[in-house]
């Protein structure tokens, strides 16, 4: 181990390099015969953002931590909250309100204001195709937010409206799709 980290003295000084000996390493590189001194570019190397680093282990260990954190969150949620199960399905007994899954709550909220052809077909289709077309519409090559004001404003507005509609449809709607305050009556379903 000592000959792998030695940088102060020359690891090869006074030593004939033979093919049978352990490889000599300096800075992770196998050396055949050099006398290392101080590097000409400076003693320590700065960490540069643009530098390429090995994915194993640097990214993999971060992904492993992220995976463990997520699984811990799932474990805690699963221990604390049981998945809902209502009475057996009954086609003759319509609950009031009927709620779509939360990720379709925005569409269901739109359905209360627009014709179903608009809210149920045109809007979701338009959103999907619009999202898919985004990189072909936005040909601005800048990456920094201050150079992308139009794209960021438009996307943020869309995202904000969608989140508000989802929250309204999920938590603020009760019987007959009337307005309720979630802290008074709760009709959200997960």
């Amino acid at each position: 181990m000592s000959d792998q980290t030695e940088n102060e003295e020359s690891p090869l000084a006074g030593e004939a390099y033979t093919l049978t000996s352990e490889p000599k390493l300096i800075d992770g590189r196998r050396v055949l015969g050099v006398v290392p001194g101080k590097p000409s570019t400076g003693e320590s190397k700065d960490l540069i953002d643009e530098d390429a680093v090995m994915v194993w282990p640097h990214l993999l260990v971060r992904h492993a931590v992220a995976a463990l954190a997520v699984m811990l969150l799932v474990l805690l949620l699963a221990l604390l909250f049981d998945a809902p199960l209502r009475e057996i399905a009954n086609p003759n007994l319509t609950p009031n309100p009927e709620k779509a899954p939360w990720y379709f709550a925005a569409l269901q909220e739109l359905l209360a204001h627009f014709h179903p052809l608009v809210a149920g077909i045109l809007v979701p289709t338009g959103i999907l195709f619009g999202l898919a077309a985004l990189p072909y519409l936005d040909r601005n090559a800048y990456l920094k937010p201050r150079h992308r004001k139009v794209a960021i404003t438009a996307f943020t507005a869309f995202l904000g409206i969608w989140i508000i509609l989802t929250l309204v449809g999920f938590a603020f709607r009760g019987p007959n799709w009337g307005w309720v305050w979630p802290w008074n009556e709760w009709y959200g379903e997960l």
């Binding site: 199960l85 209502r86 399905a89 990720y103 379709f104 569409l107 359905l111 379903e189």
Partner: peptide
């Protein structure tokens, strides 16, 4: 997620999927 929502076959599943698939009838 949506196809899995139906599988427990309870009131929640049945009517959420009824609402969701009901929109398909409005395809021109």
């Amino acid at each position: 997620s949506f196809t899995g929502y139906l599988l427990p076959w309870d009131q929640l599943a049945y009517w959420a999927v009824t609402v969701g698939t009901g929109m398909a009838t409005y395809v021109p």
